[in-house]
Amino acid sequence: MSTTIELQATLRSEVGKGASRRLRHADKVPAVLYGADQEAVSLTLEHNKVLQAQEHEHFYAQVLNLVIDGQATDVIVKDMQRHPFKPKIMHLDFQRVVAGQELHTTVPVHFINEESAPAVKAGGVVAHHLTEIEVACLPKNLPEFIEVDVATVELGSTLHLSDVKFPEGVSSVELAKGEDHDVAVVTIDKKKGAADDEEEEAASEE
């Protein structure tokens, strides 16, 4: 388990596009905190600190310690707006986390055993359909990532959400909507043109 990320924030009273623009010019990040049946509050964070923190993958899939004017609050990142081409964070949305209360959030997918997978060694090409999965769980069970073993995928077949092994206490939000939401996660197909080559070889043998 990675070390808990801590961010310092201050309450702000000025809101609106003009106020947010002034904050960004001062290397600050405007943010909002909501959830847990409490009022939403507007916040300000140091841009450089946020930029450093978000370089860690678990920043997006971990309960963070947000210290607001000295008072600590458990939160998760619900949304982040970035500048279209500059390395600049424009806005952050945080959601309060309550122990014992189920939360929904997305966690990254880690694909393992790709190079050693029998289907890949047989000439297959891996196609990732998902890079993250929305999960439902208690805060204490929130995983930093979901591991998907590509070694179990046969050549020409697809692994779906229902095939993924979720950690104890963690479930797929999408799967809970019904069988029609059992989306593809990863596929291993033959290389393009491989089928044509095989047909040509078979024809020449005849």
Rank of each mutant, 00 (worst) to 15 (best):
M1C: 11
S2L: 06
T3A: 14
I5Q: 04
I5H: 04
E6H: 05
R12G: 08
G16V: 10
G16R: 03
A19T: 03
R22H: 00
R22G: 03
R24K: 02
H25V: 01
H25P: 00
D27N: 11
P30R: 00
L33H: 08
A36H: 06
Q38G: 13
A40G: 13
L45V: 05
H47E: 06
Q52W: 08
H56L: 15
H58Q: 07
H58F: 11
F59Q: 02
Y60L: 10
L66S: 14
G70H: 14
A72F: 03
T73G: 00
T73R: 13
V75Y: 06
I76K: 06
K78Y: 10
Q81S: 06
H83K: 10
P84K: 09
M90T: 11
M90V: 13
L92W: 03
L92Q: 07
L92S: 07
Q95C: 12
R96K: 05
A99N: 13
G100R: 00
E102T: 12
L103Y: 01
L103I: 05
H104F: 10
H104V: 10
P108M: 10
V109K: 01
N113H: 07
K121M: 15
A122L: 10
A122W: 12
G123L: 04
G124A: 12
T131N: 11
E132K: 07
C137M: 09
I146G: 04
V148Q: 00
V148W: 01
A151K: 00
L155A: 05
T158G: 10
L161I: 04
S162A: 11
S162M: 04
K165A: 07
K165D: 09
P167W: 14
S172K: 00
V173A: 15
A176N: 03
E179P: 12
E179M: 13
V183H: 10
T187Q: 02
I188Y: 05
K191R: 12
K192M: 13
K192Y: 14
A195E: 14
A195R: 10
E201V: 08
